[in-house]
């Protein structure tokens, strides 16, 4: 239930085998684990002026460590401290793996 990308989708993504028609529009991706899609309210796929840091393609360890830091208060935050407390380490790990596997694919498609 909290699994990351399906192995087939992930393999296809890594090999760049998605159909060309899909590439022209929004890129498909594997089912996000619970909570992951809610992050996109603030975190865009690509960096922008004054925007929040993108999560796509960011190393999973990095995301997990940040969320731990926000939860414990060792990392300074405005709102992420309040949000991080709503996720367990396991849930965070699944979300982090999913974003890491996206590898900035959407970022490349939407400059």
């Amino acid at each position: 239930m909290t699994g990351g990308p399906t192995p087939l989708r992930l393999a296809l993504a890594l090999l760049g085998l998605f159909p060309a028609a899909a590439m022209a529009a929004d890129l498909p991706s594997s089912d996000p684990p619970p909570g992951a899609s809610a992050c996109s309210g603030c975190h865009a796929p690509a960096a922008s002026d004054g925007g929040m840091a993108p999560l796509d393609g960011r190393p999973a360890e990095d995301i997990v460590a940040s969320m731990r830091g926000f939860r414990s208060g060792t990392l300074e935050a405005t709102v992420m401290d309040r949000i991080a407390k709503g996720f367990t380490d396991e849930e965070t790990r699944a979300i982090a793996d999913w974003y890491a596997a996206r590898g900035g694919r959407d970022a490349a498609a939407k400059p």
């Binding site: 239930m1 909290t2 089912d31 996000p32 684990p33 619970p34 909570g35 899609s37 809610a38 992050c39 996109s40 309210g41 949000i83 709503g86 996720f87 849930e91």
Partner: peptide, 23 residues
Amino acid sequence: AKACAGAVLALLGGRPLAEPRLI
């Protein structure tokens, strides 16, 4: 909207539903 989209796709595809987390 995103949680609902996932549920609709799962229902159409006959796949199991995941319990969502929302923010």
